[in-house]
Amino acid sequence: MRKVSQKKSSSDELSVISEESCGCSVDGQSCTITSMVEAGEPAASDDKEFSRRRFLSLLGAAAGAAAVIGSGIELLSYRAYAQGLPQTNGWTGNSGVTGSGAATMASSEAPPTHQWAMVIDLSMCNGCKSCTAACQKAHYLTPDQTWIDVFTLTDAEGKTYPMPRPCMQCENPPCLHVCPVHATFRQDQGVVLVDQERCIGCRMCMAACPYQARYFNWNSNVQYPKLSVPPSPEMPVPQRLGTVGKCTFCVGNLNNGLLSECAAGCPMGAIYNGDLKTDVAVNSLGSTVKLSSFLYDNNAVTFKPEQNTHPRVWYIQGDGQDLNDNKASQSS
């Protein structure tokens, strides 16, 4: 335990120092990436920590589940996320429950210090698909597995514009409600993850997702590299045949003070990683904005609000762009 925390704090310092010494944010990132991989290993073997977390989570879940829609026997469903990935936050309660933030707050002494979100500035996006490429490279995806995909929509003038679509990390995720085995769960920072070790491959979640954000591992002929950490919901490499996958929001990166792969890979700075708790959003160009004012000032919208999914991804639209225009999203 102590050893782990020491190592973690040292890596934190390392990242600060390196950032300072480099002075350039891009260099700083590359430095901290290596430090993250180092920090990843000790946490993986920490079983005691894992079971304690699990216990705490169950307690938290017990209090929270009462408020949950159709709660049933959901407590059984819990499976600790992030076995194998480092966590910079101390608080690890209440993972994997459909429960709302209210339940989280009420049931735990230490609330989550982050609530991850994303802002995509459509007026900045040039449709280069660098985000898709960066994501696929980092997560060893096949070309048709798109955690973030760039669609082409039509604006009011009839001109097309690119529209990147990651997983929306809905606060009311339909995929989570329909999963018969709780393989999809929502961790305490609001990120919806898939446990490929549990998924039975029924694809009900793909049917329920209004954003086409999920894909399936259809074929067995995919080659994966061997990583030092075992596959986890946050980093499902290698992926399991016959299970569902989707964007993980690079929650490991975010917890290590890094941008997600797509945001870091965007040359236009169109993708902001945000934190609803601290009200901060940052893009790859280093511009830091106050998330709430940024959304408000730019009339940010969510995609398909009528679905009542409450996405954690907001879009800023340019002139004439209308994300929720039916003509664009539905055609004959």
């Binding site: 709660s71 709780h182 998924c199 039975i200 009900m204």
Partner: peptide
């Protein structure tokens, strides 16, 4: 054959999610 992971079918009984239509199908 419909399931991607038929060998995990038993999980429907163990990790019950009563809000899933598939649970009620079962």
């Amino acid at each position: 054959p419909h399931l991607g992971r038929p060998e995990r079918f038993w999980e429907i009984v163990v990790f019950v999610n009563t809000s899933s239509p598939l649970f009620w199908d079962f």
